[in-house]
Design a protein around this nucleic acid. Structure first.
Length: 583
RNA sequence: GGGGCUGUGGCUCAGUUGGAUAGAGCAAGUGCCUCCUAAGCACUAGGUCGGCGGUUCAAGUCCGCCCAGUCCCGCCA
């Protein structure tokens, strides 16, 4: 049980005893914002004062009189208008650290109520290059999937790739003229060529009516399963998939590809069932569901188009079919869609129709997990100087190259077989961490210089804290990763130095932090925790020599090092970032 | 026209359920390597939380209006 949960429980009991409130009353426990207010505070009295018709300080005193914290805290203090400040006792903290060290999970239990969770993320488009927008979805989605799986949920990671629709008719039609080999051989084209063809095809589609009609016919061919079109489509997908795999390997992301085309066989049933339930209406030749709470320019209900006037389906149809498949076949309890903020309207609409159609079983949660745009250092959409989107491969290689240069400057003697893999870890870590460390809902300013900076809230700073601990282990001949400290060495475990206690108190907040990330779906909370952990470790490192300390203090400090190292490694791991022993 | 999101030191951002004197990092300035990696640590300076009103014992946080930026709004995804 986390310290937060423990205190919540104790204060709920106190409120029950003092005022007859329910046992599960939420006593408003929060981590103290300032160390001078202790470690945690109970703010229940301020809220209760009104309903109890008593002054808040009296209420607070009443709670203090009834709370039982003898095993874990000093006497609670009444402060200000009615705050109750609580300070953890050193021996209690030490005992919690020992518990962490005895447990592979650092004291964080698996969830009592595991769910089947689908995380729908990354989702690049076939025949297009992955760009920074996919990077955010990929990194954030992967992190959330890792955290939920770690807590014991059954996570299905789905890559809902854009492998179907109008763009293929367009592309196939164009390639028939421009590069027919690409429709027959799987390795005729590089993805870069494909992207260029796509762009040209799009231009023709927008400008040339005849081309547009031919392209639409090609889509119909594809949808009816016509052999030549189908083969061309398969080849295009294969060529793209090879490129995607390179990126996923580099980023250490695992995903199950289940693109839009997968739901093709289920689309007509969506239309049939919506017709049967009376939700579907014909309007201007298209089959639509009119939405509640969405209006168009004239104030009339906005339609969600399920079937186009040409008989084709669109992405709303696919998403509805996917919801049905995921709730019935995959038996999902929770579905997370990690896509950019711009799609929030679309998901609100699709979710509404799915609910009204009765396709979302009781207790199943559909959540759009939105994120903001990636901006360049000029504050505008991230592009090259010439205005092109930056391919992800280029961006990642650049980060690695910069990390490598830095590493060589600092370690001129080092061998390439050290520099190369280390630079790769640091470069990728920097990109991932820069993204994850910001609240995902806001736009994010992409800057190589900032993410690779050696100071501040960056991946290199955290990695360095870990490296320092490894250094202590090396120097002392102690393998902190595997060698657990003997219980008798910890028997009189005590934390005398302020820096020891500050570090230890932060370490024991690990569990409540991860639980908060899983509820709020905000990886930046985990980043914040790890950054503060690294800061507190560095302060401890400055103030408290470990190896030269006398026993039993030496063992106690080694225990703190071990707990910090394991927490950093596990925490970074949940962000999708590996550690290094030297840098 | 409707809707979403954003607005917090020079810059980039945190800010949990409404709680005490709004926090970091960068940049700037000053110290600290005989010592486990100085990619570090300590200290200084910097704020009308876009504006106005409201709710509340208490508002950066909730509500209303306004301003600025940005994204979305029937047959693209």
């Amino acid at each position: 049980m986390s310290v937060l949960a423990l205190l919540r429980d104790r204060f709920a009991i106190a409120c029950h005893r003092a005022f007859g409130l329910p046992r599960n009353y939420d006593p408003a426990i929060a981590a103290a914002k300032d160390p001078k207010f202790g470690d945690y505070q109970c703010n229940a009295a301020l809220g209760l004062a009104k309903s109890l018709q008593r002054p808040p300080r009296t209420v607070a005193q009443n709670i203090i009189d009834h709370v039982d914290l003898g095993d874990c805290c000093d006497l609670p203090e009444l402060a200000g208008p009615g705050f109750i400040n609580v300070r953890l006792r050193g021996d209690f903290v030490a005992q919690q650290i020992q518990q962490m060290l005895r447990d592979d999970r650092l004291g964080l239990p698996m969830t009592q109520s595991p769910q089947r969770v689908i995380v729908d993320f990354s989702s690049p488009n076939i025949a297009k290059e992955m760009h920074v927008g996919h990077l955010r979805s990929t990194i954030i989605g992967d992190c959330l999937a890792r955290v939920l799986a770690y807590l014991g949920h059954d996570v299905l990671r789905l890559n809902h790739v854009g492998d179907w629709g109008t763009q293929f008719g367009m592309l196939i039609t164009y390639l028939r003229e421009a590069c027919p080999e690409a429709l027959v051989h799987s390795n005729a084209l590089e993805l870069g060529d494909l992207v260029a063809f796509y762009r040209a095809a799009k231009q023709r589609f927008d400008e040339d009516d005849t081309f547009r009609d031919t392209a639409r016919l090609a889509v119909v061919d594809l949808q009816t399963g016509e052999a030549i079109a189908r083969r061309a489509w398969t080849l295009l997908c294969e060529q793209s998939r090879r490129e995607f795999e390179k990126i996923y390997t580099l980023l250490d992301i695992s995903l199950i590809e289940r693109g839009e085309s997968f739901y093709n066989p289920y689309l007509s049933a969506v239309v049939d069932d919506l017709t049967a339930s009376g939700l579907l209406q014909q309007d201007g030749g298209a089959a639509c569901v009119f939405l509640e709470g969405f209006t168009n320019k004239d104030g009339n209900p906005l339609p969600l188009i399920i079937q186009k006037s040409d008989g084709g389906y669109n992405y709303a149809t696919t998403d509805l079919a996917a919801i049905r498949y995921r709730t019935t076949q995959d038996r999902a309890d929770r579905i997370l869609y990690v896509t950019d903020m711009g799609q929030s309207g679309h998901f609100a609409q699709v979710f509404q129709v799915a609910r009204r159609a009765g396709w979302v079983p009781e207790g199943v949660e559909l959540t759009h997990v939105p994120f903001g745009l990636v901006l360049g250092e000029d504050g505008k959409k991230f592009k090259t100087r010439s205005g092109d989107t930056v391919p992800l491969k280029v961006l990642l290689d650049e980060a690695i190259a910069r990390a490598e240069k830095d590493l060589r400057d600092r370690n001129p003697e080092a061998a390439t077989d050290f520099i190369h893999p280390t630079a790769q870890v640091i470069g990728i870590a920097a990109v991932k961490y820069a993204d994850l460390s910001q609240n995902r809902t806001s736009n994010y300013l992409f800057s190589y210089d900032k993410m690779l900076s050696l100071q501040g809230n960056t991946a290199p700073y955290l990695l360095y804290a870990y490296v320092r601990i490894c250094g202590i282990g090396r120097k002392g001949g102690i393998d902190l990763e595997t060698q657990t400290l003997q219980p008798d060495q910890l028997q009189y475990f005590s934390l005398r130095e302020p820096a020891e206690l500050v570090l230890a108190k932060h370490l024991i907040q690990w569990g409540e932090t991860i639980e908060a990330v899983a509820i709020e779906l905000l990886p930046n909370r985990l980043c914040q925790y790890l950054f503060e952990l690294s800061q507190k470790f560095n302060q401890f490192f400055e103030q408290c020599p470990v190896l030269q300390a006398e026993e039993p203090g030496r063992s106690h400090r080694l225990a703190l090092c071990q707990a910090t190292a394991r927490t950093l490694k596990l925490g970074l791991g949940l962000l999708g970032i590996p550690t290094v022993a030297k840098m």
